[in-house]
Every structure is written in structure tokens, then in C-alpha cells.
Design a binder for these strands. Structure first.
Length: 645
RNA sequence: GCCGAUGUAGCUCAGUGGUAGAGCACUUCCUUGGUAAGGAAGGGGUCACGAGUUCAACUCUCGUCAUUGGCUCCA
């Protein structure tokens, strides 16, 4: 007799040994047809594994992340089998499932695999899938496993084996492919109905750039063709929203080989957008007790040696430049914090002055590897929306909460409704990697956790992800396509206050060290604007967009009236232009729509007579006739609504 | 930096071992038109760059640079 407890706490009893599939069958045959994997007493395993004693069972289908994981993991095996068929002797590294699909790292020896090979591999995979091959699990000893892969000549699997204990080593066999694998796998390959191999890439064996580079093949698979189609449509949509494409089309920024890699050139409209963003943020920050400061683009190399950044990141910075006569060395500023420390040190501080909140839109330069550069999201020169807060230890939590509120407010205004947070703490095992006393760390970690809880954030806690100088809280926004982007970060720092001898006089009249908090909301303006472009598909919020409206005269006869409208709207601080080209109205509308300008104001005889404009909204169509003043009020009211706290 | 792919007009892209193409954009002219492309003519390219093979290279080979998908890195 086996007693099975299900997640809803109901129980079922069976006479014999059973599998999770049998459990599913006892509930409904529909469920049984869809079960991909199961969790038995907390362990995720194959749905067809025998259950011999009373157990708690959870069943996973395609609707569950665990089900998808098994599905994609099995798809990776299926791909490996097909690849082994076409490329006998290929050696296999690892082939896991990932967030959206799977990959397999493979050593093809002298052969090269290209995307041209995808089609035949996909077809082979589908043909195999249709055979409903079972994944057979086999317990093997370490010696047996080593013998198998030695014979096969797969040194990667042998290396993986070397790290495994001689217990619970399992092989999975499906068709002609045998793999060292922990599982779980789906019951048979027949579930896999749609497959798409996406791209090939080089990937270092075990992520170590000193080791051999294997060929990584990414793919995705689904139980229904329709889901694959939808997924591919999502990828298409992402392509359409690519900020590099839209940045060009909307004339926001460009790059030039002559200027240099990773050094963006902001065009007039992009500059306008960026400036408006910084102006808005400046206003918000001042309201919240921040003071704006500014520092230069270069700093003495000794400054960064003092801060410790030179030792740690000197390799990733531009080489020092020297003054022509004295030979004094300067570096392009890689971060703002040392400069801000010196601003703090420019006068003595009392505990009464704290916290000091110092903000700067500081442009910094970092040597990013050439292969890393990507549009505006990874560049060599960028502007941080940086701030440093110098406060007393007991103020840390309050400051943290204030920053969390600020970040939330800003994201909301910019149209990001969802974000997730991660708290990065010390590695529990290895505390030597960090500087600062245990006491301070504990205080700071506690403050972060409490602040996060107090604001109802469901932060994921990661141990070992903290910076060497303190714990941090990171913000990741979700964009309109559900993609996550890391933007803001709040970090506590116990390093710089020692190195820069930061102090304040306490109420005991003794010198104390302030706690320093680094924080950014966007990370970098460049990166943020890239994310904003992709999130909004170039349809920026009305308050932020470079051009809010465009005036479209029906013909030359109305150019004078158009200019009158332009001047009036300018008086209302509405950003607009007149399209004076000798084109038909339909054409002007089309071009304005493509430029994603929020409002088109069509003016002709009727409007001139009535002192009005005919308003068409981007993506929506004709809104009817408005007096110029009413239109201005409409825009300004909407803008006000958008940015009010 | 490493592995793969790509590089033809301002943009999007065809194309062939034998004198370089389209659409859009641009210029000029005609047109003055009411809610997503009016018409005509014209200008514009060392086919990324440099070598090699060939009677002949935009095309084939190699190298360089850049772009791109990843890997590694990210104060």
C-alpha cells in the first residue's frame, strides 16, 4: 500500500508500487497525457520513476517552470542526438535548459557548425521526436561511466565525472544518444512538437576564458507549433524595438568609426531627450534633499590608487595620460565616488549636517572589451545618474527606504510598471573577501533587508553577490515584452570612508566615520534610454518626447497661419514644428506617424477661420477640432498628470 | 579579448569571374492636394580596407578593420 499526498493535501492510496504518471492517471487521463516531470518528497524527478513508499507528490506540466525545464532539458538531449548523427565524434560538454529554451556546448574538432546546418538538425530532431523515444535512466558506477566516456573519447564528460562522488551517477539513454545526466527528463520525446535552433556562439568550457572554446548551439522547443510561432513573433517584435534601429530611425544617436568604438554621438533629438530626463531628475532630487555637484572628466591617477579602484580595475580603464611638462599622470574618470569623497572632505562636518546627499550626472569612461560593446547598453563613455549619501550608521535604513521610494517613483513615471529586486549579501563561507568589520556588515545587511521588507519588496537574497566593500540592493525593471533589465543599484560602502579619511564630529565631540551609500536609479543615462526606447517602442511619454506635436498645413496658403499656431504653442512651452514640405496631407501624416510624434495638428481653411487646429493622435487617429488654447491645455494637463508625485 | 555570421548608394536590400541594380531618402521642376506614400527628371557607390590567384575579382583565397549573435568581464 502506497499513500500519496497531493499539493492540495488530498491523499490517494494505491495497492502497488506506482509512478507519478499513475498518480496523474488516477486524477484524469488528460493530466496523465500532459505530465512532464514530478516532485516526489521535494525531489524533482522523472514522472515515470517508481514510487515505493508513502510520498508527497507534485505533478508538473508545461504550465509549470519545472515542467518547461524538463522539456527543454530533454530537447537538448534530442539535439545532441541529432548532432551526433550528422557529426559523429563530436564531443559534448554541458547541455542545460535555460530561461527560454536550451543549449548544448559541443566540441566539433576541426569541423565548423554554422546556421546553415540548423535546418537538417531540426528536421532530424522532429523525426526522432515523433518516434516517442523514451528517456531511460540508468544508475552506473563511476568506473563504468569513466569507461564509457573514455571509449567514446569525450574528455569533457570525463572532466565532469571527475568532480562527482561515486554515488547516484546516472546515465540517460534516448535513441542512440547516451548522456551523463542527473535528469529529470520528460516521459518521451513525443511531447516535443516544434523546434527552432536559434543561434551558434562560442562558449568557453566551464566559463573559463583560458580554456578551450566550444560551440554553443541555442534552441527552443514547444509542445505546440502555435507556441513556437508566437515565440518567434515575440523575437520579431523585439527586433523591431531594437534601440539601435529606432535610435537611427528617430535620429536620437549615432556612432562613428572615426570617433571611436563605444563612444556614442547624441543627435539633437536624443540630446533633447537626455537633457529633459536629467532636468526632471534634478528637480526631483533637489526636492528630496540632494545637492548637485560636478566634477571633471579626468582625475589624478593617485586619486584612483587611493580609492583602490586602480588596483582592482586599472586594467579595465584607459591608460593614464600625462601632463606634457611635469609628467603627472591623469586618468579618464572611471567613477565619480572618489571625487565626491573629496567634495565631502572640503569642509568639516557635524553629525547635525548628515546625511549629505550628493548627486551628479557624471560622465565616466571605462575600457570595455570590444566584443562587449552593444549599442547604448554597453559603451566606453557614459553618464551615470550617480549619487552618494554620507550618513550616520543609524540613518542607513531610513536613507535606504527613501531611495527605494525614489526609485519606484521614477520607474513609475517612466512607464515601468513592474520591477524586481535582489539583495546581494556576503558569501557566508568566505568572509575574508570583504573589507569592513563584521559588526558594520551585519548592521548594513540588516538595514537593507528591513528597508526592503518595510517597502514590501519581495527581494531575492543572493549570498556572495555583494561588492567587496558592502552589501547592495539591485533593481531590475520588466519591459513591455517581459524582458528584465538591471538598472538601479543601492550599495553600502565601508571602504572609501577609511581610504579618504571621511569624518564627522559626533554629539560626543569625537570624530566618527560616516557610512557611504552609492546609488543610481538608471545606472547610466545611455543604458536607460536604450531600455526606454525598447520598452516604449520609441513612443516616449508625452512629457519626455523631443517633439510633442507637428503642425501640418494642408497647403502653402496656410503656412502663415501655421506659424501663428507654432508661436502660440511655443508660448505654452509645447515642443512643435511645422511641416512646410510641398507634400499632400496624407504623406505628411504618414511621415509624422512613422516618426512617432504624439500629436499631428492639421490646419487648413476651416481651422484658420475658426482659429483652431484639427488634432490627430499618433496611433489613434482623428480627435476632432480644438481651439489652439484648448489643445495646449490638453497637452499640458496630460504632462502634469504624468509627472505629478 | 575569444568563437560564429555579416559588410554593395544616406537607409533597407537584390546581384554576377567580363563596364554596378531596385525601393525609400536627397536635389530640381510640376502639383496646392483634408487624416498613413501625387508626378517627372536628376545627382549619388574604389561593391569595408589590404594583399594574393586570374587575361580579367564586387564575386574565389588569405589578412585587417567594423558590425552582429554569444562567451568571458562589468567599479
Amino acid at each position: 500500500m502506497v499513500k500519496i499526498t497531493l499539493p492540495d493535501n488530498s491523499t490517494k492510496e494505491f495497492d502497488n508500487e506506482i509512478t507519478a504518471l499513475d498518480v496523474a492517471q488516477s486524477i484524469s487521463s488528460g493530466l496523465a497525457r500532459n505530465v512532464l516531470a514530478a516532485e516526489v518528497n521535494g525531489i524533482i524527478q522523472d514522472a515515470n520513476m517508481l514510487i515505493t513508499s508513502d510520498s508527497t507528490v507534485k505533478l508538473f506540466t508545461w504550465m509549470d517552470d519545472e515542467g518547461k525545464a524538463a522539456f527543454w532539458h530533454s530537447s537538448a538531449h534530442l539535439m545532441a542526438e541529432a548532432i551526433e548523427f550528422f557529426f559523429p565524434g563530436a564531443k559534448f560538454g554541458i547541455g542545460p535548459n535555460i530561461e527560454n529554451g536550451f543549449y548544448y556546448d559541443i566540441d566539433f574538432g576541426d569541423r565548423v557548425l554554422s546556421e546553415n546546418d540548423f535546418k537538417k538538425i531540426e528536421e532530424k530532431m522532429l523525426a526522432t521526436a515523433r518516434q516517442k523515444q523514451q528517456f531511460t535512466r540508468k544508475n552506473v558506477t563511476k568506473a563504468e561511466a569513466i569507461e564509457y566516456f573514455s571509449k567514446k573519447g569525450d574528455e569533457y564528460k570525463l572532466e565532469l565525472l571527475a568532480d562527482l562522488e561515486d554515488v547516484d551517477i546516472t546515465f540517460y539513454e534516448s535513441g542512440n544518444f547516451v548522456d551523463l545526466c542527473r535528469g529529470p527528463h520528460i516521459p518521451h520525446t513525443g511531447f516535443i512538437k516544434a523546434i527552432k535552433l536559434l543561434n551558434v556562439a562560442g562558449a568557453y568550457w566551464r566559463g573559463d576564458e583560458k580554456r578551450k572554446q566550444l560551440t554553443r548551439i541555442y534552441g527552443v522547443s514547444f509542445p505546440k507549433q502555435k507556441e513556437l510561432t508566437e515565440y518567434l513573433e515575440l523575437l520579431e517584435e523585439a527586433k523591431k524595438r531594437d534601440h539601435r534601429k529606432l535610435g537611427k530611425e528617430l535620429e536620437l544617436f549615432t556612432f562613428s568609426q572615426k570617433v571611436g568604438l563605444g563612444l556614442p554621438l547624441w543627435l539633437p533629438k536624443g540630446t533633447d531627450l537626455k537633457d529633459r530626463l536629467t532636468q526632471f531628475l534634478t528637480k526631483v532630487l533637489k526636492k528630496r534633499g540632494y545637492e548637485m555637484v560636478s566634477s571633471m572628466h579626468i582625475g589624478n591617477v593617485n586619486l584612483y590608487k587611493l580609492s583602490g579602484h586602480y588596483d582592482k580595475y586599472g586594467e579595465d580603464s584607459f591608460h593614464p595620460i600625462s601632463t606634457p611638462i611635469e609628467g603627472e599622470e591623469f586618468m579618464l574618470k572611471p567613477m565619480n565616488c572618489p571625487h565626491h569623497c573629496e567634495i565631502y572632505n572640503s569642509k568639516p562636518h557635524s553629525y547635525k549636517d548628515l546625511p549629505v546627499r550628493m548627486a551628479e550626472f557624471g560622465t565616466v569612461y571605462r575600457y570595455e572589451q570590444s566584443g562587449e560593446l552593444h549599442g547604448l547598453t554597453r559603451v566606453r563613455g557614459f553618464t551615470q545618474d550617480d549619487a552618494h549619501i554620507f550618513c550616520r550608521p543609524e540613518q542607513v535604513k531610513k536613507e535606504f527606504i527613501a531611495i527605494i521610494d525614489l526609485v519606484q517613483y521614477i520607474y513609475k513615471i517612466l512607464g515601468f510598471k513592474e520591477f524586481v529586486t535582489q539583495i546581494s549579501l556576503r558569501d557566508k563561507e568566505n568572509r575574508d573577501k570583504y573589507i569592513g568589520s563584521d559588526e558594520n556588515w551585519e548592521k548594513a545587511e540588516k538595514a537593507i533587508i528591513e528597508a526592503s521588507e518595510e517597502r514590501g519588496l519581495k527581494s531575492k537574497i543572493e549570498y556572495g553577490e555583494a561588492a567587496f566593500y558592502g552589501p547592495k540592493l539591485d533593481f531590475m525593471v520588466k519591459d513591455a515584452l517581459g524582458r528584465k533589465w538591471q538598472l538601479g543599484t543601492i550599495q553600502v560602502d565601508y571602504n572609501l570612508r577609511e581610504r579618504f579619511n571621511l569624518e564627522y564630529a559626533g554629539n560626543d565631540n569625537l570624530k566618527h566615520r560616516p557610512v557611504m551609500i552609492h546609488r543610481t536609479i538608471f545606472g547610466s543615462l545611455e543604458r536607460f534610454i536604450a531600455v526606454l526606447i525598447e520598452h516604449s517602442a520609441g513612443n516616449f511619454p508625452l512629457w519626455l518626447t523631443p517633439e510633442q506635436a507637428i503642425i501640418l498645413p494642408i497647403s502653402e496658403k496656410y503656412h502663415n497661419y501655421s506659424k501663428k499656431v507654432l508661436n502660440l504653442l511655443n508660448d505654452y512651452e509645447i515642443r512643435t514644428q511645422v511641416d512646410e514640405r510641398s507634400e499632400k496631407t496624407g504623406r505628411k501624416i504618414r511621415d509624422a506617424e512613422l516618426q512617432k510624434i504624439p500629436f499631428m495638428l492639421i490646419v487648413g481653411e476651416k481651422e484658420e477661420n475658426e482659429n483652431a487646429v484639427s488634432v490627430r493622435q499618433h496611433g489613434k487617429g482623428d480627435l476632432g477640432t480644438f481651439s489652439i488654447e484648448d489643445f495646449a491645455k490638453l497637452v499640458n494637463k496630460e504632462v502634469e498628470e504624468m509627472i505629478k508625485e
